[in-house]
């Protein structure tokens, strides 16, 4: 079986936002709204007193193995593929936002009829969206199916985003996860996320 996952190495993420732009263009997201990103990169200071760091922290859907967004979804619009990718079917979704409420990772994005209309003007003849939905990162399933990497991974200038198959012991990301250097966010919630982070901060002292 394939079990897709992403490892994000915070050590080489430079906060360039190329991933945000790539994802927006690849997945025709509503860029006219500054808050509607499938992926976004925090740019924040972290640390106490003078021991301060600037951290770039990319975020996206974690494609949880136990996804609360899917459980609560009444229409079945949110579903999980056998390869581990959690998808949203725009035709089934009625936009109740229960998934957004359930997701602990702020990974869901509302796309309204107004957005769909704007999208037709913005993306023109190629616009693929037909209806609203509470959208999210798809791990670029359409690319992955063709053997390509997700758009954000492909362009990541810091090679901070790595994509691979956890079920393949040869895969570097599987090894990173197995060795414990790459760890998920808020595992205590029990979502069993498939996005892992390599820590960038070696605190002094």
């Amino acid at each position: 079986m394939t079990h897709y996952a992403m490892v994000i190495d915070l050590n080489t993420c430079v906060g360039c936002n190329a991933c945000m732009a790539a994802c927006a263009m690849e997945n025709q997201t509503p860029v006219w709204d500054k808050n509607k990103w499938r992926t976004y990169v925090h740019d924040k200071e972290i640390g106490l007193g003078s021991d301060v760091h600037r951290r770039f922290f990319p975020r996206l859907c974690n494609h949880c193995d136990n996804p609360p967004c899917m459980t609560v979804c009444p229409t079945g619009a949110t579903y999980k593929k056998p390869n581990g990718i959690v998808m949203v079917d725009q035709d089934l979704c009625m936009g109740c936002r229960a998934c957004a409420m359930a997701c602990p990772y702020q990974a869901r994005v509302e796309v309204s009829w107004a957005d769909v209309k704007e999208g037709r003007a913005f993306y023109g003849s190629d616009y693929r969206r037909r209806r609203p939905s509470v959208d999210k990162c798809s791990f670029c399933d359409h690319r992955v199916e063709q053997g390509l990497k997700p758009a954000c991974v492909e362009t990541c200038v810091g090679s901070a985003r790595l994509f691979g198959d956890l079920d393949d012991p040869e895969d570097p990301i599987a090894q990173m996860v197995a060795s414990g250097v790459a760890r998920p966010l808020m595992p205590h919630i029990g979502t069993r996320p498939n996005v892992y982070y390599i820590d960038d901060i070696r605190w002094r002292g």
């Binding site: 360039c16 190329a18 732009a21 790539a22 263009m25 023109g124 492909e154 362009t155 990541c156 200038v157």
Partner: peptide
Amino acid sequence: RGKICARGQAGLRQTY
């Protein structure tokens, strides 16, 4: 090496 930055990625929107 197959990568481009945010400006490069968004570049097509200059044309449009």
